[in-house]
Amino acid sequence: MRTPTKSERKVIERLFREYTLEELADAFVFPVDPPTEEQRLAEEEFWAERRRQMANRTPEELKQSKMLQIKYQILNYIDQIDPKEHWNFQYFLNEYIRAQDKKDKEFADDVDVKPYVLSQYLNGHRTPPKEFLIRLELHSNGLIPASWWLRLLQKSKEAELMQDTAIREQESKHVKNKIELTL
């Protein structure tokens, strides 16, 4: 919880004078005073009940939660222009399969690919075609669209390309008459 400093209290008072309540809700979550003893006790009880509910989730609820977790991990990852960490397509495909407690062979059967082909997708030795991405979308019942899997693949390739110094050395012998720029 964030409590206001003395000068922040003055700022908050000023903001409440200058703006309507609607404008304030549309622009702020404010620092607030600590709870009273009564509120603190109610709060403790509330969190105890929440922890109980979370601990008593059924395996099906846990599976659903894990699937949504992967969905938003992918979304927040592909939304970032310059992600701090590079995850790749393989990582998320592996997570997707594990979230359903399936073996690779069972999942390969679900999406009608040979187990060795799935294994190549998983270790990055083969790039999945668009048909496979569509099958992933259908398998997730639209939860994770094919376009997200495609953006993941593109992001993985981009990171790979940027980090690969060996290929630059290797390919430089095939390039001549380089443009010379004075920057």
Binding site: M1, R2, E18, Y19, T20, E23, D26, A27, F28, V29, F30, P31
Partner: peptide
């Protein structure tokens, strides 16, 4: 917990 949100002052209100 959302501890704090603030729009930049020029993007607050009318």
């Amino acid at each position: 917990e959302i501890r704090l949100i603030a729009n930049a002052s020029e993007h607050t209100g009318r």
